[in-house]
Design a protein around this nucleic acid. Structure first.
Lengths: 154, 154
DNA sequence: TCTCATGTAACTTCATATGATGCGTGATAT
DNA sequence: ATATCACGCATCATATGAAGTTACATGAGA
Protein backbone atom coordinates (compact mmCIF):
# COMPACT_ATOMS: atom_id res chain seq x y z
CA UNK A 1 0.00 0.00 0.00
CA UNK A 2 1.70 3.15 -1.19
CA UNK A 3 1.46 5.98 1.32
CA UNK A 4 -0.04 9.32 0.45
CA UNK A 5 2.48 12.06 1.25
CA UNK A 6 0.48 15.03 0.02
CA UNK A 7 -0.03 16.44 3.50
CA UNK A 8 3.65 16.14 4.30
CA UNK A 9 4.45 17.71 0.94
CA UNK A 10 2.10 20.62 1.15
CA UNK A 11 3.32 21.49 4.64
CA UNK A 12 6.83 21.46 3.29
CA UNK A 13 5.80 23.94 0.62
CA UNK A 14 3.94 26.15 3.08
CA UNK A 15 6.91 26.39 5.40
CA UNK A 16 9.15 27.35 2.54
CA UNK A 17 6.61 30.00 1.54
CA UNK A 18 6.43 31.24 5.11
CA UNK A 19 10.11 32.15 5.12
CA UNK A 20 9.50 35.31 3.12
CA UNK A 21 6.56 37.06 1.54
CA UNK A 22 7.63 37.03 -2.10
CA UNK A 23 5.39 35.02 -4.44
CA UNK A 24 6.70 31.57 -5.34
CA UNK A 25 5.93 30.11 -8.71
CA UNK A 26 4.56 26.59 -9.07
CA UNK A 27 7.63 25.83 -11.08
CA UNK A 28 9.99 26.87 -8.28
CA UNK A 29 7.95 25.01 -5.66
CA UNK A 30 7.87 21.97 -7.94
CA UNK A 31 11.65 22.03 -8.16
CA UNK A 32 11.91 22.24 -4.37
CA UNK A 33 9.55 19.29 -4.03
CA UNK A 34 11.02 17.20 -6.85
CA UNK A 35 7.71 17.19 -8.64
CA UNK A 36 5.75 18.72 -11.46
CA UNK A 37 4.38 22.30 -11.35
CA UNK A 38 0.94 20.96 -12.25
CA UNK A 39 0.99 18.68 -9.22
CA UNK A 40 1.76 21.70 -7.05
CA UNK A 41 -1.19 23.60 -8.50
CA UNK A 42 -3.42 20.59 -8.01
CA UNK A 43 -2.48 20.30 -4.35
CA UNK A 44 -2.64 24.04 -3.71
CA UNK A 45 -6.06 24.44 -5.31
CA UNK A 46 -7.84 23.28 -2.16
CA UNK A 47 -5.81 25.61 0.04
CA UNK A 48 -6.57 28.52 -2.25
CA UNK A 49 -10.30 27.77 -2.13
CA UNK A 50 -10.13 27.84 1.66
CA UNK A 51 -8.23 31.13 1.60
CA UNK A 52 -5.05 29.77 3.17
CA UNK A 53 -2.94 30.82 0.20
CA UNK A 54 -3.50 33.07 -2.77
CA UNK A 55 -2.21 32.87 -6.30
CA UNK A 56 -1.43 35.62 -8.78
CA UNK A 57 -1.03 35.32 -12.51
CA UNK A 58 1.38 37.07 -14.81
CA UNK A 59 4.78 38.59 -14.25
CA UNK A 60 5.93 38.38 -10.66
CA UNK A 61 3.00 36.12 -9.90
CA UNK A 62 2.91 32.93 -7.92
CA UNK A 63 1.81 31.64 -4.54
CA UNK A 64 1.78 33.46 -1.24
CA UNK A 65 0.57 32.72 2.27
CA UNK A 66 -2.78 34.38 2.96
CA UNK A 67 -3.60 33.34 6.50
CA UNK A 68 -2.47 33.78 10.07
CA UNK A 69 -0.07 30.94 10.74
CA UNK A 70 -1.12 30.99 14.38
CA UNK A 71 -4.73 30.28 13.50
CA UNK A 72 -4.33 27.48 10.99
CA UNK A 73 -3.73 23.92 12.15
CA UNK A 74 -2.57 20.82 10.36
CA UNK A 75 -6.15 19.67 10.52
CA UNK A 76 -7.28 22.67 8.50
CA UNK A 77 -4.72 21.84 5.85
CA UNK A 78 -5.74 18.19 5.91
CA UNK A 79 -9.33 19.21 5.27
CA UNK A 80 -8.35 21.63 2.55
CA UNK A 81 -6.68 18.73 0.77
CA UNK A 82 -10.08 17.07 0.63
CA UNK A 83 -9.73 14.87 3.72
CA UNK A 84 -7.72 12.07 2.14
CA UNK A 85 -8.03 8.56 3.57
CA UNK A 86 -6.26 8.20 6.89
CA UNK A 87 -6.28 4.45 7.30
CA UNK A 88 -4.96 1.93 4.83
CA UNK A 89 -7.24 -0.73 6.30
CA UNK A 90 -10.99 -0.89 6.30
CA UNK A 91 -14.00 -3.07 6.71
CA UNK A 92 -15.23 -5.51 4.12
CA UNK A 93 -18.72 -4.61 3.03
CA UNK A 94 -19.41 -7.38 0.56
CA UNK A 95 -22.13 -8.91 2.71
CA UNK A 96 -23.76 -6.25 4.88
CA UNK A 97 -26.52 -8.65 5.89
CA UNK A 98 -24.13 -11.26 7.26
CA UNK A 99 -24.12 -11.27 11.07
CA UNK A 100 -20.52 -12.45 11.14
CA UNK A 101 -19.51 -9.50 9.08
CA UNK A 102 -21.52 -7.17 11.29
CA UNK A 103 -19.75 -8.48 14.39
CA UNK A 104 -16.32 -8.16 12.80
CA UNK A 105 -16.99 -4.72 11.40
CA UNK A 106 -18.34 -3.45 14.70
CA UNK A 107 -15.17 -4.41 16.54
CA UNK A 108 -12.76 -3.24 13.86
CA UNK A 109 -14.75 -0.12 13.07
CA UNK A 110 -14.58 1.07 16.66
CA UNK A 111 -10.81 0.72 16.72
CA UNK A 112 -10.50 2.40 13.32
CA UNK A 113 -12.68 5.31 14.38
CA UNK A 114 -10.74 5.86 17.57
CA UNK A 115 -7.41 5.90 15.76
CA UNK A 116 -8.68 8.33 13.14
CA UNK A 117 -10.14 10.56 15.78
CA UNK A 118 -6.89 10.64 17.72
CA UNK A 119 -4.91 11.53 14.62
CA UNK A 120 -7.26 14.36 13.70
CA UNK A 121 -7.19 15.65 17.26
CA UNK A 122 -3.40 15.76 17.18
CA UNK A 123 -3.50 17.53 13.82
CA UNK A 124 -5.83 20.08 15.36
CA UNK A 125 -3.33 20.80 18.12
CA UNK A 126 -0.47 21.85 15.83
CA UNK A 127 -0.50 25.23 14.11
CA UNK A 128 1.58 26.20 11.12
CA UNK A 129 3.27 28.76 13.35
CA UNK A 130 4.46 25.96 15.64
CA UNK A 131 5.89 24.08 12.70
CA UNK A 132 7.60 27.20 11.45
CA UNK A 133 9.02 27.87 14.91
CA UNK A 134 10.33 24.32 15.08
CA UNK A 135 12.00 24.76 11.72
CA UNK A 136 13.64 28.00 12.81
CA UNK A 137 14.87 26.36 16.00
CA UNK A 138 16.42 23.60 13.94
CA UNK A 139 17.94 26.17 11.63
CA UNK A 140 19.43 28.09 14.51
CA UNK A 141 20.68 24.87 16.04
CA UNK A 142 22.42 23.87 12.87
CA UNK A 143 23.93 27.32 12.43
CA UNK A 144 25.27 27.27 15.98
CA UNK A 145 26.67 23.81 15.44
CA UNK A 146 28.34 25.08 12.29
CA UNK A 147 29.77 28.06 14.13
CA UNK A 148 31.05 25.76 16.84
CA UNK A 149 32.76 23.55 14.31
CA UNK A 150 34.28 26.56 12.69
CA UNK A 151 35.51 27.86 16.03
CA UNK A 152 37.33 24.57 16.53
CA UNK A 153 39.09 25.08 13.21
CA UNK A 154 40.55 28.37 14.37
CA UNK B 1 -6.71 5.07 -1.93
CA UNK B 2 -8.19 1.62 -1.89
CA UNK B 3 -8.50 0.16 1.59
CA UNK B 4 -6.99 -3.18 2.52
CA UNK B 5 -9.74 -5.43 3.89
CA UNK B 6 -7.68 -8.55 4.45
CA UNK B 7 -7.91 -8.32 8.23
CA UNK B 8 -11.66 -7.86 8.10
CA UNK B 9 -11.89 -10.72 5.63
CA UNK B 10 -9.77 -13.19 7.53
CA UNK B 11 -11.68 -12.53 10.75
CA UNK B 12 -14.87 -13.22 8.85
CA UNK B 13 -13.46 -16.55 7.74
CA UNK B 14 -12.23 -17.44 11.22
CA UNK B 15 -15.61 -16.77 12.78
CA UNK B 16 -17.30 -18.94 10.22
CA UNK B 17 -14.76 -21.66 10.96
CA UNK B 18 -15.33 -21.28 14.68
CA UNK B 19 -19.00 -22.22 14.35
CA UNK B 20 -18.16 -25.90 14.02
CA UNK B 21 -15.06 -28.05 13.95
CA UNK B 22 -15.39 -29.61 10.50
CA UNK B 23 -12.64 -28.72 8.04
CA UNK B 24 -13.57 -26.03 5.51
CA UNK B 25 -12.07 -26.11 2.05
CA UNK B 26 -10.48 -23.02 0.52
CA UNK B 27 -13.07 -23.30 -2.18
CA UNK B 28 -15.97 -23.14 0.28
CA UNK B 29 -14.38 -20.28 2.21
CA UNK B 30 -13.71 -18.48 -1.05
CA UNK B 31 -17.37 -18.77 -1.97
CA UNK B 32 -18.36 -17.36 1.42
CA UNK B 33 -15.98 -14.46 0.94
CA UNK B 34 -16.78 -13.83 -2.73
CA UNK B 35 -13.19 -14.46 -3.66
CA UNK B 36 -10.81 -16.99 -5.11
CA UNK B 37 -9.62 -20.12 -3.25
CA UNK B 38 -6.01 -19.16 -3.93
CA UNK B 39 -6.55 -15.80 -2.28
CA UNK B 40 -7.87 -17.62 0.77
CA UNK B 41 -4.81 -19.86 0.92
CA UNK B 42 -2.56 -16.86 0.50
CA UNK B 43 -4.19 -15.05 3.41
CA UNK B 44 -4.36 -18.14 5.61
CA UNK B 45 -0.73 -19.07 5.06
CA UNK B 46 0.46 -16.62 7.70
CA UNK B 47 -2.07 -17.87 10.22
CA UNK B 48 -1.02 -21.44 9.58
CA UNK B 49 2.65 -20.58 10.10
CA UNK B 50 1.73 -19.03 13.46
CA UNK B 51 -0.29 -22.10 14.42
CA UNK B 52 -3.63 -20.31 14.61
CA UNK B 53 -5.17 -22.62 12.02
CA UNK B 54 -4.16 -25.90 10.46
CA UNK B 55 -4.73 -27.28 6.99
CA UNK B 56 -5.12 -30.84 5.79
CA UNK B 57 -4.76 -32.13 2.28
CA UNK B 58 -6.75 -34.78 0.51
CA UNK B 59 -10.24 -36.07 0.96
CA UNK B 60 -12.09 -34.45 3.82
CA UNK B 61 -9.27 -31.93 4.12
CA UNK B 62 -9.43 -28.19 4.55
CA UNK B 63 -8.94 -25.56 7.21
CA UNK B 64 -9.65 -25.80 10.91
CA UNK B 65 -9.11 -23.59 13.97
CA UNK B 66 -6.05 -24.69 15.94
CA UNK B 67 -5.87 -22.21 18.77
CA UNK B 68 -7.68 -21.13 21.90
CA UNK B 69 -10.03 -18.35 20.82
CA UNK B 70 -9.70 -16.81 24.27
CA UNK B 71 -5.96 -16.41 23.89
CA UNK B 72 -5.73 -14.97 20.42
CA UNK B 73 -6.35 -11.26 19.81
CA UNK B 74 -6.99 -9.26 16.68
CA UNK B 75 -3.45 -8.02 17.04
CA UNK B 76 -2.10 -11.56 16.75
CA UNK B 77 -4.07 -12.02 13.55
CA UNK B 78 -2.89 -8.66 12.25
CA UNK B 79 0.69 -9.70 12.82
CA UNK B 80 0.13 -13.11 11.26
CA UNK B 81 -1.01 -11.31 8.12
CA UNK B 82 2.43 -9.73 7.94
CA UNK B 83 1.60 -6.44 9.68
CA UNK B 84 0.08 -4.65 6.70
CA UNK B 85 0.27 -0.86 6.54
CA UNK B 86 -2.08 0.80 8.98
CA UNK B 87 -1.97 4.38 7.75
CA UNK B 88 -2.68 5.55 4.25
CA UNK B 89 -0.62 8.69 4.84
CA UNK B 90 3.04 9.03 5.53
CA UNK B 91 6.00 11.34 5.53
CA UNK B 92 7.82 12.49 2.45
CA UNK B 93 11.41 11.40 2.55
CA UNK B 94 12.67 12.87 -0.69
CA UNK B 95 14.97 15.30 1.08
CA UNK B 96 16.04 13.89 4.44
CA UNK B 97 18.63 16.64 4.84
CA UNK B 98 16.13 19.47 4.49
CA UNK B 99 15.38 21.09 7.84
CA UNK B 100 11.88 22.02 6.73
CA UNK B 101 11.18 18.42 5.97
CA UNK B 102 12.63 17.35 9.30
CA UNK B 103 10.34 19.76 11.15
CA UNK B 104 7.27 18.63 9.21
CA UNK B 105 8.07 14.96 9.56
CA UNK B 106 8.72 15.26 13.27
CA UNK B 107 5.29 16.76 13.89
CA UNK B 108 3.41 14.45 11.56
CA UNK B 109 5.39 11.39 12.55
CA UNK B 110 4.48 11.81 16.20
CA UNK B 111 0.77 11.97 15.38
CA UNK B 112 1.08 9.00 13.02
CA UNK B 113 2.88 6.92 15.62
CA UNK B 114 0.33 7.68 18.31
CA UNK B 115 -2.57 6.72 16.06
CA UNK B 116 -0.93 3.47 15.03
CA UNK B 117 -0.11 2.64 18.60
CA UNK B 118 -3.68 3.24 19.71
CA UNK B 119 -5.06 1.04 16.97
CA UNK B 120 -2.72 -1.82 17.81
CA UNK B 121 -3.53 -1.47 21.49
CA UNK B 122 -7.24 -1.75 20.72
CA UNK B 123 -6.58 -4.78 18.54
CA UNK B 124 -4.73 -6.35 21.43
CA UNK B 125 -7.74 -5.92 23.67
CA UNK B 126 -10.15 -7.94 21.54
CA UNK B 127 -9.97 -11.73 21.47
CA UNK B 128 -11.48 -13.97 18.82
CA UNK B 129 -13.71 -15.39 21.55
CA UNK B 130 -15.16 -11.94 22.15
CA UNK B 131 -15.91 -11.54 18.47
CA UNK B 132 -17.51 -14.95 18.36
CA UNK B 133 -19.60 -14.15 21.43
CA UNK B 134 -20.72 -10.90 19.82
CA UNK B 135 -21.74 -12.78 16.72
CA UNK B 136 -23.72 -15.32 18.74
CA UNK B 137 -25.45 -12.52 20.62
CA UNK B 138 -26.44 -10.94 17.32
CA UNK B 139 -27.63 -14.29 16.08
CA UNK B 140 -29.74 -14.85 19.17
CA UNK B 141 -31.08 -11.31 18.92
CA UNK B 142 -32.14 -11.80 15.35
CA UNK B 143 -33.77 -15.12 16.12
CA UNK B 144 -35.72 -13.60 19.01
CA UNK B 145 -36.79 -10.72 16.80
CA UNK B 146 -37.96 -13.23 14.24
CA UNK B 147 -39.92 -15.15 16.87
CA UNK B 148 -41.49 -11.95 18.09
CA UNK B 149 -42.59 -11.00 14.60
CA UNK B 150 -44.03 -14.44 14.14
CA UNK B 151 -45.91 -14.16 17.43
CA UNK B 152 -47.56 -10.99 16.15
CA UNK B 153 -48.77 -12.84 13.08
CA UNK B 154 -50.67 -15.34 15.21
C1' DT C 1 -4.47 -45.37 -8.61
C1' DC C 2 -7.87 -41.95 -8.88
C1' DT C 3 -9.73 -38.01 -6.82
C1' DC C 4 -9.52 -34.29 -3.78
C1' DA C 5 -7.39 -30.41 -1.48
C1' DT C 6 -3.53 -27.68 -0.26
C1' DG C 7 1.21 -25.11 -1.66
C1' DT C 8 3.30 -21.96 -4.78
C1' DA C 9 4.94 -19.66 -8.60
C1' DA C 10 3.87 -16.94 -12.47
C1' DC C 11 0.88 -14.22 -14.95
C1' DT C 12 -3.07 -11.07 -15.84
C1' DT C 13 -6.31 -7.56 -14.68
C1' DC C 14 -7.73 -3.59 -12.46
C1' DA C 15 -7.82 0.56 -9.70
C1' DT C 16 -5.64 4.60 -8.56
C1' DA C 17 -2.07 8.01 -7.69
C1' DT C 18 1.22 10.61 -9.96
C1' DG C 19 3.37 12.76 -13.85
C1' DA C 20 3.09 15.04 -18.39
C1' DT C 21 1.10 17.75 -22.21
C1' DG C 22 -1.60 21.24 -24.27
C1' DC C 23 -4.29 25.07 -24.43
C1' DG C 24 -6.98 28.88 -22.37
C1' DT C 25 -7.04 33.13 -19.39
C1' DG C 26 -5.41 37.01 -17.16
C1' DA C 27 -1.64 40.16 -15.60
C1' DT C 28 2.57 42.72 -16.31
C1' DA C 29 6.58 44.65 -18.68
C1' DT C 30 8.39 46.89 -22.72
C1' DA D 1 -0.20 46.61 -28.64
C1' DT D 2 2.02 42.48 -27.89
C1' DA D 3 5.20 39.35 -26.00
C1' DT D 4 5.98 36.94 -21.92
C1' DC D 5 4.88 34.95 -17.78
C1' DA D 6 2.17 32.24 -14.54
C1' DC D 7 -1.89 30.02 -13.10
C1' DG D 8 -6.38 26.93 -14.32
C1' DC D 9 -7.84 22.92 -15.99
C1' DA D 10 -8.95 19.05 -18.93
C1' DT D 11 -6.93 15.10 -20.74
C1' DC D 12 -3.78 11.58 -21.50
C1' DA D 13 0.26 8.57 -20.10
C1' DT D 14 2.73 5.91 -16.75
C1' DA D 15 3.78 3.34 -12.65
C1' DT D 16 2.64 0.83 -8.74
C1' DG D 17 0.51 -2.66 -6.07
C1' DA D 18 -3.46 -5.46 -4.71
C1' DA D 19 -6.53 -8.88 -6.17
C1' DG D 20 -7.77 -12.40 -9.17
C1' DT D 21 -6.42 -16.33 -12.28
C1' DT D 22 -3.99 -20.22 -14.17
C1' DA D 23 -1.06 -24.06 -13.92
C1' DC D 24 1.24 -27.59 -11.90
C1' DA D 25 3.37 -30.09 -7.97
C1' DT D 26 2.62 -32.56 -3.56
C1' DG D 27 0.40 -35.29 -0.30
C1' DA D 28 -3.73 -37.75 1.80
C1' DG D 29 -7.46 -40.71 1.64
C1' DA D 30 -11.18 -43.61 -0.77
Amino acid sequence: MRRDSRLSGVLHVLLHMAEDDTPKTSEALGRAMCTNPVVIRRIMAGLRDQGFVQSEKGHGGGWRIACDLNKVTLRDIYEALGQPEILAMGNRTDMPGCLVEQAVNAALGKAFDEAEELLLRRFGEVTLAMLSADFNARFKGQRDKFKLEKAHDD
